[in-house]
Design a binder for these strands. Sequence first.
DNA 1: GACGATGCTACGTCTGTCGTGGTATGTGTA
DNA 2: TACACATACCACGACAGACGTAGCATCGTC
Lengths: 128, 128
Amino acid sequence: MNELNAGISSDVIRGYNDTMILYILKQEPSYGYEISKRIRSISEDKYIIKETTLYSAFSRMEKNGYIESYEAAGDGSGKKRTYYRISETGLKYYREKCNEWELTKDVIQRFIDGSSYLTMKGEENGNN
Amino acid sequence: MNELNAGISSDVIRGYNDTMILYILKQEPSYGYEISKRIRSISEDKYIIKETTLYSAFSRMEKNGYIESYEAAGDGSGKKRTYYRISETGLKYYREKCNEWELTKDVIQRFIDGSSYLTMKGEENGNN
DNA sequence: GACGATGCTACGTCTGTCGTGGTATGTGTA
DNA sequence: TACACATACCACGACAGACGTAGCATCGTC
């Protein structure tokens, strides 16, 4: 099955892809392919962002002024890449999303049956 | 002033409205207006579900077999209401969403600055 | 009978995600 | 030379959930 993101529905991540990308760019400028790999590795393969999602996020965020792009050749090779760096606005946006996340997480958590059902190990699904 | 849900973007909640509704119905059958108020009160006014969102969730979930509806008059009045009760499938779905939530929460958290988990500094580094 | 609270529905728009498919360069290898 | 494969990016369009707007009907009250 193509469901690489096992157990993670994109509907939840929706709206947080931008945040993830900004988190990467906050550390240092980067480009599409590498960001995609970083996200995958940070999440320990639990989340793999789709290419189209990634690039549409780039153009959206650049339009919003959260990131800026510039052309550059990578290593010794002549391969051109589009690098992105985070802007001040982007950093501010990222921090807002972090705050929002704490809030939202708290709210959703109230509607989740947590530890109790997990401890009694009563899982009847073939999900993994 | 329609921004009643201060600080909470619907993009995050997206996909978890169903879960919230099922959480309410898991306790006892209920109907639209009351569920809406329950969600508002449980979240301490931090999240207020839109009417259209609520009712479209009903029809979606009924179509999926997660809930069942029945007509009933409420209190002494002759007002007809459409009550919903959760089904076995719905309960199973709810539990899956709970599991998914724990997973997703953990993943997103890795891209968020500001919590204590950062202080322990054991994060991903040059690990690739 | 005007009003607000309750209770529900129809219709259409918007936005983020993602499937499909395409372009182009660099590297390995046979 | 040929080819596969990883890298690197993009256009197009479909889809689904959230939501804005609008409407309808009932009930209690003043």
